[in-house]
Every structure is written in structure tokens, then in C-alpha cells.
Amino acid sequence: MVLQRRPGNGSNGCQMRPVLIKGAGVVGLVTAYELARRGIEVDVVEQAQHIGAGASWFAGGMLAPWCERESADEKVERVGAAAIEWWKAALPGKVAQEGTLVVAAARDTRELDRFATRTTGHRWLDAEEIAELEPDLAGRFARALYFPREAHLDPREALSSLGDTLMAMGVRFHFGQATDATVSHRFDWRIDCSGRARLPDDAALRGVRGEMLYLRTGDIQLSRPVRFLHPRHPLYVVPRRQGLFMVGATMIESETCGPIAARSLMELLNAAYALHPAFGEAEITETGTGVRPAYPDNLPRITRSGSTFCVNGLYRHGFLLSPALAHDVAECLLSPNHQSEFHDEA
């Protein structure tokens, strides 16, 4: 996009005025980081009492641009690959780059072949190589696809540390405030990163419900996310610390936030059990539901109306795409001629 003027800058190059960010989910926090490190003063309002109260909290935290290419646009792969480096730089030590393992039950191995034809950045592993990478999966699968460059993080830990980092950088958080009414006069620019809260105001935006659960077991250890392909119920298991595993996630065209459906729970558990019977003995420590905002092409958009930018529609790619979007927004504010890849003229 092309901005006609340098924002908050008049003609004499004075300092950029503070920016207000609405929403402390992954998009809001990453945007705050990109602005703060460019020396811009940032305030964040969040209607909940803590950060990451929306869909981000229930994310898988897989930084898996090559796997996602199976069903996602080429842009997701290209932009997502850079996101891995972004998170490693922003949160040193919090990102594990152990790759992704993709497996299927013996009768569904054609799903693996199909997955392989739709993606790049992988190589085939045989049973022995699978056992070397994930000893607890030894003997369970004859073949797997391995995406060595992919990474994962714990979204809750990542959001919390990013919040701490931002506070240390001087970003001010205002929790329990849905609007900027009390403080709006101070800001030249507002960036709306409120995700699902925008659904009623943006006709093109829809919600895609995702359900997930946490299992705890000491009987199995995994070092990397494992995707278990199935013609009807594909699933992923992402290892967290202390024997926790995040199991996700359904994709339902619905904006309902209510508790997980029995059918979804059964399907997720069934698939986890098929991946490894040890999950059958695990404790279910949590179930959760998030509504991911998405546009019809399932790609995010930056829209501008007056002095407000809206960044939304990250679908299931919040952690993967927010660094690129935040970078774009920051450049839009600072450089009059920045060409944004995600800007929507409509």
C-alpha cells in the first residue's frame, strides 16, 4: 500500500505520537513488539484481564509453514518460514526447532503420499529412522514424512514472555478495557487486533471454531509435533513441558464458543489413542475451544479506515503469520511508500 503522508510527522520530522493497540492476543502483542522496537510508544487495551484470552491461548504453537502448505496458500509457506526466525530472535530459548513428523495408520498410508505431493521441505523416513527421532513411536509406523526445518513453541509461555518483554520495553497494558474511549485523544493511530471481537463489524470475516484438549502422561515422550493423517479426522499432538501434550484441533464453520462437543472429544481422543495407546491412559487436564477469525480466502488482511488499521483473519496461522503482518503495519506507519502484501483496498 502507499500512504500519502508520513503519519504523525507533518513536514518537520517530529517524533511519532503514541500508538494504541486493541487486543492482547498474538497479533496485538507481536505488533506491539514490532512498533516498540522501532522506538514507538505503545499502549495496549485488552477487554480480558490477561493476555492471550482469545484463540491464541488454544493454539497448537506449531511453526509449520511447509506442512500447512498442504491446504494453505503459497503465501503462508513463504511468510511462515521467516516467522520461525522471528520467534527465535524475539524469545530466545523458547522455540524448539526439531521439525515435524507426519504419520498415518497402515491403512491410510495413501494419505501420506497425498500429503507429500502437496508439500515440500520434507523427506521420507523408514521405521528405523522414525525410531531414532521418536523412540516411543518405534515399531508403530513403517513410513513417515519429516519436515526438519519446522519448529514449535508453547503459545501460553510465548505470549506470557512476550508480554513481560513488552512491559520491560515500556509498553503499557490496560486490562479489562474493551475500548480506548478513556485514552483515545492521545493517539494518532489505532491498530485493531481484536480478532473474533471484530466479527459483528466486518461482514467478510467469519469464525472457524477449533476444539482442543490437553493430555498428561509420563508414559510417552515426544520431541516434536506429530501430525497423524486420517481421511476424516486429521490430528496433531504437540509436546509441552512436564508430560503435557496438546491435542488438536477441529475445524468447524461456526462462531460458537461453547464447550467442546462430545463427538469432537471422541474423535480427538480416538486419533490420539491410535497414534499411541499410552494416550489412552493419560489424564485429560483441559479441553478448550477457540474461534479463529478468517476471511473467505483464509488469508489475513490489513485494512485501513482513517487512522485505524485492522489486522485480522489469521485463521489457524496466528503464530505463523503475525510477525509478517506486524512488520507490515509498522512499515506502513513509518514509511510512506511501503508496499504491504496483506493490505486490502476494499
Binding site: 469464525g207 461456526s254 462462531e255
Partner: peptide, 16 residues
């Protein structure tokens, strides 16, 4: 059924 949850229809998808 597949595009709904909790009995509430996926309004935006149906609109599309």
C-alpha cells in the same frame, strides 16, 4: 451438522 457446533448454525459460512 458438520458445519455447526452446539446446535447453532455456522451463519457466516451458510451466508457464503
Amino acid at each position: 451438522r458438520r458445519e455447526t457446533a452446539g446446535g447453532k448454525a455456522g451463519g457466516a459460512f451458510f451466508e457464503l
